[in-house]
Design a binder for these strands. Structure first.
Length: 564
RNA sequence: CGAGGAGUAGCACAGUUUGGUAGUGCACCUGGUUUGGGACCAGGGGGUCGCAGGUUCGAAUCCUGUCUCCUCGACCA
């Protein structure tokens, strides 16, 4: 692309309706423009970059044997009813009606449609396995779009679906796709980790997330400093340290106006880790009281799974009144009128502080034997410094952007939608499915979050919109423009995507723009041209070197080979 | 959905408290001088002040309503 007479602009200052680094750089570099909250135009430069990412994805999908197809986005609502996902998605699905008032939706994901497509083809075990995929828009009415391209309401997703006759086949298809995913993120130069995650609205038995590591991330990743344990906080577990000691005598003590666990512990001069706090929650309109160590947080995901609930909320005063709990002083001893669930950690604690269900009083030296409970389970978030459940190392956190997700779905969709095949014994069986999603837009945002400096974006060669930018500094000089144009043509002929800055701008403007948009290689054609020299500078280096005209192309080719 | 903040030129913002001709920087146009790190001088164009209603002789400014955007939270494959 020659910048003169092209659609190209940059902004000198940050815009105020983007707060994230990547969001602002994408907007300032003229790659995207916001239309509405969570909805963006992809302008030429942005589309070209996105397409480079999509191309890598497509190459790896095809290489893994998957076949591409395309599903519609506008779908009758009934497609999602069979598997109960109209409810599962709730208000995050876009609904609309046609002229006959028939309900339609904009597809938030496509498991059902791919299953229906598979039904047309699958009759016998001989028809399995296979994997199909698409790269298509998805629509989700997010509660809060944010961070530029990270959380948007319309976005592309490459989603793939595997179909096998049994679990063994699924394991194989899953591994093929999982390996392809690793190659995709490696080729895109994303710094990522894979974590175990919750299966959520997708269902199934296994979910692994590919998380780009950045401080902007919305997910907390739990990692081990000794082994390769890695898990999303929502499902992370820890090894509990046994702190049992000889039980002392239970004693009630006055704790006037000390209602938070921190206040109580500091008043009694006790370590918060030697206390147990109560959380009074509304689960399916029932009062459930959770007891966890004083410094812990309840993990809503674990609780919902344990109780088969969709959500947990704080209990209302009316609901609390059905028990003898006293907010601020709630304890498990002689507690009635509520379901009591304790965290498994309490089994390994002794002589702890806990509420007495009397205003202004707590017990000290409480022990498990002093009260009854309904369920004991893992119901809390792990914390940094907790013990790794696998190797005993120390756990630590990182933040991540979920850029890919792979699921072992099992037979959830095939059973409900009747995707069956006849096996060797003429028996009808449901196909076993896996599904695999990647968000190219999130990859783009993640790469920018991970690769930028005060000047702007630093694109890796593999996905940069142009690998080389030629800055022709003296637009009035025929020699300069002739050489720059010749180099531009030659590089493009060699398949090296090249941009020529032939605008009538001062050098500083060109340098700053090319640095902002992150082109990996800059060739400056300037005053050394009379000596037969041009300047080579890599975006990720502060050094520049002079090249003789005859060696320019070889040098660039070699540099790209070594650095892509 | 809860809490907070913001809507004035393409971008960033001042002006609003105390009502009285619509402003500044960057960007843009014309002319000139410059030409290896966001040039300088001179002249110029561009605005229903988010929208609707109200108060007033007069509203960007006061009042009422409403829409949009951002941040934190809730939510989220």
């Amino acid at each position: 692309m020659k910048l003169k007479n092209s659609y190209f602009y940059t902004l000198r200052e940050n815009v105020k309706d983007e707060d994230s680094v990547s969001g602002n750089l994408l907007v300032r570099s003229g790659m995207i423009k916001k239309v509405s909250s969570g909805i963006y135009m992809f302008l030429p430069l942005g589309l070209k970059t996105l397409d480079n990412i999509k191309k890598i994805i497509k190459e790896e999908m095809d290489a893994s044997g998957a076949q591409e197809l395309l599903m519609p986005s506008l779908l009758p609502e009934e497609v999602y009813e069979t598997c109960g996902r109209v409810d599962a998605f709730g208000s995050s699905m876009f609904h609309l009606h046609d002229r006959y008032d028939k309900p339609y939706v904009l597809g938030p994901t496509h498991e059902e449609l791919f299953t229906i497509a598979a039904k047309s083809m699958v009759k016998s075990y001989k028809d399995l396995p296979f994997t199909i995929y698409q790269d298509a828009p998805k629509y989700r009415d997010e509660a809060r779009p944010r961070f530029g391209l990270v959380r948007v309401r319309e976005f592309f997703m490459k989603d793939a679906y595997s179909f096998d006759k049994d679990e063994i086949g699924l394991d194989k298809s899953y591994k093929t796709m999982f390996d392809a995913y690793k190659r995709i993120f490696d080729r895109c130069h994303v710094n990522y980790v894979v974590v175990k995650a919750d299966t959520g609205a997708m269902g199934g038995s296994l979910s692994e997330e590919f998380q780009a590591v950045t401080d902007l991330g919305e997910d907390l990743l739990v990692l081990c400093d000794k082994c390769d344990y890695s898990s999303n906080l929502e499902v992370a577990t820890r090894k509990i340290v046994d702190q049992n000691e000889e039980a002392k005598t239970l004693e009630i003590v006055e704790t006037p106006n000390q209602e938070t666990i921190e206040e109580v512990c500091s008043y009694l001069n006790v370590d918060v880790k030697k206390s147990v706090k109560a959380l009074l929650m509304n689960v399916n309109d029932e009062l459930v009281i959770f007891f966890i160590r004083g410094d812990r947080e309840l993990n809503e995901n674990k609780v919902c799974k344990l109780l088969g609930a969709k959500e947990v909320n704080f209990a209302s005063d009316d609901l609390i009144a059905k028990s003898n709990a006293v907010p601020g002083y709630t304890g498990p001893i002689k507690l009635t009128g509520a379901k009591i669930i304790i965290d498994e950690e309490l089994k390994y604690m002794s002589n702890f502080v806990v509420g007495a269900n009397v205003k202004g009083y707590h017990y000290i030296n409480a022990n498990l034997k002093d009260f009854n409970y309904d369920i004991c389970a893992d119901i809390v978030n792990v914390k940094e410094e907790d013990i790794c459940p696998v190797c005993g190392g120390k756990l630590y956190f990182k933040k991540g952007i979920e850029v890919g997700n792979t699921f072992k779905l099992g037979t959830k969709y095939s059973e409900k939608l009747g995707l069956t095949y006849l096996d060797e014994n003429n028996e009808s069986k449901p196909a076993v499915m896996g599904c695999y999603g990647i968000g190219p837009g999130r990859i783009l945002a993640s790469i920018i979050e991970q690769n930028n400096d005060e000047k702007g974006i630093i694109f890796p060669l593999a996905i940069a919109p142009y690998k080389v930018a030629i800055a022709a500094l003296n637009t009035n000089d025929d020699n300069c423009m002739n050489y720059a144009n010749k180099l531009y043509d030659e590089l493009n002929k060699l398949g090296i995507d090249c941009m020529l800055d032939d605008r009538e701008e001062r050098p500083g403007v060109k340098f700053n723009d090319l640095e902002l948009i992150g082109i990996p290689i800059r060739i400056t054609v300037g005053k050394k041209l009379v000596d037969g020299l041009v300047e080579f500078k890599a975006r990720n280096s502060s050094e520049s070197i002079d090249l003789k005209l005859e060696e320019v192309i070889n040098y660039i080719q070699k540099y790209i080979e070594e650095n892509i």
